[in-house]
Design a binder for these strands. Structure first.
Lengths: 201, 201
DNA sequence: CTATTTACATACGACCGTGTTTGTATAAAC
DNA sequence: GTTTATACAAACACGGTCGTATGTAAATAG
């Protein structure tokens, strides 16, 4: 037994999180035993139980590791001269991250299709906090666009924001569930631009 | 042991499916044992194994029991004089069914948030068949609207159909994940009408 | 340099869920 | 009216998984 330094222990921790993500993605969270994760990480269950109290805590750690940096990535410029372009940029950024960053994509795939929202996971169904903030950002951006007369007549900021919110939710879902060859994945950028074009004055 | 008639046996089968839906919804598919389902149905595992080979088959039976009648419910009139109104009606019908029919709603909740798409469930991720047909129906309806000059200029049927497809996907998701008091649930009808209003000439 | 804590590996006990097998009373078939 | 198939209940055997307890060598604290 070679006792590790603090730095090496932290690396072990990250390896376990990485392994958990891989196994979660392949087997689903429920059908993943800590033994599988440990094996995939090249350690034993002892190491896993040392770093995490149970599978639930490991799952949350894995989630925060990838999701937190993701929501911070999509930001809106509050003083944008062209709010609609700002929205478009933000939406495009979402799918750029999905395409470019494997860790984020895999984690979103797990929380979308490879876990069951019951008991301890129930509260984070819909990620209430982040989602609502995103919708609020959209509403404010559309309101700024309305103030500048950039919106097509007859559309209120609230309605447009909700519609865009639903569009993003649906596109992310279909983007994730389709494989790399999926038309939704290939055409995401075009669809975002077309969606925004629909609301310009 | 009171041997049942064929009719009574069929009732038992439906009771088991009903019980499965309730327990799946509360515990998630993976954390639901056949013992739990049997108890909820007032029978033993013996009855469950008599009617279904395993949990997987029971899950599929439960799904077909509610989903098949659902997709058939949303139809498009191919000869509609007002294709946009037809689309709107079809979309409204989706959320009417979700609101009115508990069985359908609960089943959709299960397949959306209470099961993990791995192994045998992997192929039905995204319900490839039904979804694609719905998108095709939308595209054809928008094409008919385009032929009649009902669409706002600059929008192609394909783009509008995809946009509506994403909208529906997102709205169904948020509709389901919000509780009965959710603003997405209350305002679904209004959001559908607003969505359609955006594309009229 | 000693004592203690750390970072794991290993071993243990217990429970659960699964699939199957066997039992059985009755409905249905002939 | 037998016979057979049905519709379950009850019992069994099995492996998997969990949490914990224990062991241990090296890092760190003093």
């Amino acid at each position: 037994m070679v006792r590790k330094t603090k730095e090496e222990a932290e690396i072990t921790r990250l390896h376990i999180i990485d392994a958990a993500r891989r196994v979660f993605l392949q087997c689903g969270v429920s059908h993943t035993s800590l033994e599988k994760i440990a094996a995939a990480a090249g350690v034993t269950r002892g190491a896993v139980y040392w770093h995490f109290r149970n599978k639930s805590e490991l799952f949350f750690a894995m989630r925060e590791d990838a999701i937190l940096p993701f929501v911070d990535r999509v930001v809106f410029d509050a003083e944008d001269e062209e709010p609609l372009a700002g929205i478009e940029t933000a939406l495009l950024e979402i799918f750029r991250v999905l395409a470019d960053e494997q860790k984020t994509r895999e984690t979103l795939e797990i929380v979308s299709f490879k876990c069951e929202y019951v008991d301890e996971l129930l509260p984070l169904m819909g990620c209430s906090a982040g989602q609502q903030a995103f919708l609020d950002d959209l509403t404010r951006a559309y309101a700024r666009a309305a103030a500048r007369g950039l919106l097509r007549p007859g559309a209120t900021p609230e309605v447009l924001a909700t519609d865009t919110f639903m569009f993003v939710g649906g596109l992310v879902k279909h983007w994730l569930e389709g494989g790399p060859e999926s038309p939704f994945r290939q055409g995401a950028e075009e669809m975002v631009r077309a969606h925004m074009a629909l609301r310009r004055a």
